[in-house]
């Protein structure tokens, strides 16, 4: 346990990424990522939920009996999601209307209960906080990347409908990348999400393989030297 926080961060962002490796929470991941703003909104909401639920679960971990832990976790997560849902309804009403059912559905996002069960219920509060933060960030980054890809290919824009999140002052941020772009409907529809996520997972596996090959090359060389 030399660098617990570094391990937690690496786990959440890369080697155990909830979306690319654990393939958890696919339903919101695939349904919502048709624009960057939607992805960011859902990602941040999920991250917040993860942090609060991880911290709470970690704080009560000594008092919850193992037989009833799952209902307790679900209750905690549901309360937190309700709070987030109501706040979004109050402050980001248009975005809330677009994300719709997927905000309350964060409750059913497997990532959250998985982190509560697998990590938060066994670790201290600061560690649980870091785990929630980085798992949430890892999820948000994948969401955001997929959302960007689908928005660029599907609509040919960046930061479309940004005003939903930052108000009308941010409207100038919307960029039209190509003049006279007809749009590519497939990228916006569900097949685009499956294809995009498939390519992202393949790309991550490719990078991992490259790294593994590089690390493998050194021990073999050393072995040869030792034999010599």
């Amino acid at each position: 346990m030399s660098h617990p926080y570094r391990d937690i961060a690496r786990n959440g962002l890369w080697s155990n990424n909830p979306a690319l490796v654990q393939i958890l929470g696919l339903c919101p991941l695939l349904a919502i990522t048709n624009t960057m703003v939607n992805s960011l909104g859902l990602g941040l909401a999920t991250t917040l939920t993860l942090i609060f639920s991880n911290v709470t679960v970690s704080a009560i971990r000594h008092w919850v009996r193992p037989e009833i832990r799952i209902p307790v976790f679900v209750l905690i997560i549901a309360s937190i999601v309700t709070v987030i849902e109501l706040s979004m309804n109050a402050w980001f009403h248009e975005l809330y209307m677009i994300l719709g059912i997927f905000i309350p559905l964060i409750v059913t996002n497997c990532t959250i209960i998985a982190r509560a069960e697998a990590f938060a219920s066994k670790n201290s509060i600061p560690h649980a906080f870091a785990d929630g933060l980085f798992m949430g960030l890892g999820f948000t980054l994948v969401l955001l990347l997929l959302g960007t890809l689908r928005e660029v290919i599907g609509f040919g824009t960046l930061f479309r409908q940004i005003e939903l999140m930052f108000g009308d002052h941010a409207k100038w941020l919307t960029v039209h990348l190509f003049g006279n772009y007809r749009g590519y409907l497939l990228a916006i529809l569900p097949p685009g999400a499956f294809l995009g996520l498939g390519f992202m997972i393949a790309f991550k596996n490719m990078i991992d393989k490259r790294i593994a090959r590089k690390h493998q090359a050194i021990p073999v060389k050393q072995l040869v030297q030792i034999v010599k």
Partner: peptide, 8 residues
């Protein structure tokens, strides 16, 4: 099918 969905 892809074309039909994407460019109706």
């Amino acid at each position: 099918a892809m074309l039909l969905i994407a460019f109706p």
